[in-house]
Computed example of a mutant assay.
Amino acid sequence: MKIDFANLTKAYEEHSSEFEKVALDVMSSARYILGKETDEFEASLQNYVKSDYALGVSSGTDALLLAMMALGIRGGDEIITTPFTFIATAETIACLGAKPVFVDIDEETFNIDASRIENAITDKTKAIMPVSLYGQMPDMDEINAIALKHNLAVIEDAAQSFGALYKGKRSCSVSTIGCTSFFPAKPMGCFGDGGAVFTQDAELYDKIKAMRVHGQVKRYTHKYIGMGGRLDNLQAAILNVKLKHYEKDIERRQNVAEMYTQLLKNYVSIPSVKEDRTSVWAQYTVRIKNREQVQLYLKEAGIPTAVHYPIPMHLQECFAYLGHKKGDFPVSETCAAEVMSLPMNPYLTNDEIEYITSNLIKNL
């Protein structure tokens, strides 16, 4: 048996007639940038997330950049975040000349440990950027309370958690600015790059809306330094279709995760989701001591795996200038050495899940 990790082919085939129709509509009308499809998608995003404002942008990375630009983040500022994440989180901070200040993670959820944040705050701190890793949001009430106390902004890096719930509220709706990604392999992915920014603040919305078009407030009149950060209209049209079916996809991902959990709970360290929130299962990530050996066995059985992420940010060469060393963030380092993501997509069958788990268990 050969398993598909994300099964993007099936994601296309299931709604191919709808995708092809909207794609042809965009192409035949020549509405390539900021057309009605983008307007419709942004309205649907706003309604789905229950955010006052939503903007489609060119990628999840650009969403983070635009969020910080709108907040006025600049050289010398500090942003508190996690070292256990994809590089875009810390990279965008550095791109603006600011300093990523790392705080170790909670071993159970892999998200930033809110109890450690306050000790990292200095007079240069301007924002906290928690990451909703693997599909589950971190302790946002605690993080927001710390931010309020110290007059800081909160930017949720929700690249992996679009659609997840925290105490009944959607990811991207419970911070100063929420940012997500529609990269193809995300729980709701487009057919290229795409992302979105959410806020409840009208002033921030207006700034980001201008900044995604080079700071332009009317043609050739530029109020801000911005960037080319628009969501392609073709991707917006595709995402309009995806969003209509997304709740069903989330339910199926949760069913896959539940079956994994039941079959694996007595054999490996499984993911932990807190009772007051849900995960959209961007990844189903277990912890294994002999990871490389197990990955090799599974590969030979036709089962792909991935490591999200093998090197924490503070040990990446590009962040050597921060002066960190091994041992500075021990929980992140331990997790990075042990985590292994299993195939996760809405189309995995019971037989495939049993095949994956049985091969994993016998090769531990």
Rank of each mutant, 00 (worst) to 15 (best):
Y53L: 13
W281T: 02
N7T: 10
T199Q: 13
D139C: 04
K36I: 10
E14V: 13
G56V: 08
M340T: 03
N111T: 13
N266K: 14
P83T: 00
V256A: 15
P346M: 13
A257V: 10
A158Q: 05
I73F: 10
L348P: 02
I143M: 07
V49K: 05
F86G: 07
P312G: 00
V174D: 01
E203I: 14
Y32C: 03
I87K: 11
V217F: 15
D4S: 12
V280W: 11
R116M: 14
L322W: 01
E107H: 05
E247Y: 10
T305N: 09
V217I: 15
P100A: 06
S175R: 03
E156D: 11
N111V: 08
M313Y: 01
E118S: 08
Q283C: 05
T89Q: 03
A185W: 01
A70M: 11
P83K: 05
S272Y: 15
E203T: 13
Y297L: 04
Y347P: 00
I288R: 02
K50L: 12
L322Y: 00
Y48L: 11
T221S: 07
S44E: 15
S341R: 09
Y53D: 04
D249E: 14
I303R: 02
V101A: 02
L96W: 12
K218V: 09
R253C: 09
K223S: 11
A196N: 02
S181V: 06
K169R: 15
G75W: 06
S175C: 14
L152H: 09
V154W: 10
H324F: 09
Q316G: 00
M340F: 06
G194Y: 01
F5P: 05
D351A: 15
H222N: 10
E42L: 13
Q262E: 13
A145S: 15
T180I: 02
G228S: 14
A336Y: 04
G35C: 10
K126N: 09
I361W: 10
M140H: 01
V307K: 09
E333C: 01
V22Y: 05
R219E: 10
L298D: 02
M340W: 04
I225F: 08
E156A: 09
P83N: 01
V339L: 12
N151S: 15
K99Q: 09
E338W: 00
R253N: 11
S161W: 06
I80N: 00
D62N: 15
S115V: 07
